[in-house]
Amino acid sequence: MTAVAGGTSAAEGAGSGEDAFLAAFDAAVAAEERIEPRDWMPDAYRATLVRQMAQHAHSEIIGMQPEANWITRAPSLRRKAILMAKVQDEAGHGLYLYSATETLGTGRDELLDKLHAGRQKYSSIFNYPTLTWADVGAIGWLVDGAAITNQVPLCRCSYGPYARAMIRICKEESFHQRQGFELLLALSEGTPEQHAMAQDAVDRWWWPSLMMFGPPDGESAHSAQSTAWKIKRFSNDELRQRFVDICVPQAEALGLTLPDPDLRWNEEKGGHDFGTVDWSEFQAVLKGNGPCNEERITQRRRAHEDGAWVRDAAAAYAAKQAAGSDEKAVAA
């Protein structure tokens, strides 16, 4: 535990004072003030944040895999550089989010252990495979696009460190979406084979992207409380609608179609109507039966286990150096 991290504040365990603290907390949230690590907060608020932020962090680092899959095969040096920088950003975003989570008193190792043991989740979208180069573009345009739609409101989330991490991430993320769009545009306007590759990728990634907003509002387990706490600002369905409305004209600009026969403009609601997401697929992937669940977690676990001797070495070296300088201090 560090001075900067939260955890047990003096207030906790006071019992009788709890009501007063809760009232102060509620008032702060209502007044759009940010909650900071060492403030008193309800246990459930802390738990919700840890769950959501950890899942978010895990998604960033698992999300490196499907795209890293193409770094060695990127078809031009320019694209290779862009893709490497993007995958690197994802590692960086994971780091920002893990450190934000650590302010709540949960260490990164503990979070990683839970991920590796399958006790914490990451976004199901990364359990889909990247089969062609165009998938890199589809991930940038659709998956990152959906992520940004989800994340922009989080920049105003009631928990300060999370909101600050999200501001940094959203700033960096906009390059991700643009490069994806640009990549797809080059394919769409390229040879017939390239165009077909782009369309195939969009066909495969469209529906899973819509699932990224989570189950319909009526069935969302955590939504109501998260909204009250101002962790969540818009409902799953609101965000999904916003995303569809953003994508339709972009798809047109790309010269690609979205694989939904029911997609059409509804003048009355001022938005698009669209088909029903296959929630049974969503549930199946969530439960571990997606195309790549096993591979993703296995690779993550292996990287961590294979790296243990490296982390140990650096820790041992640091300990030796510290002991050495103590000896010198004593000698002096």
Binding site: T2, A3, V4, A11, R38, D39, W40
Partner: peptide, 12 residues
Amino acid sequence: PSAAITASSPDE
């Protein structure tokens, strides 16, 4: 080092 930081009152 985070551990070297001394923070003010718990609830800021």
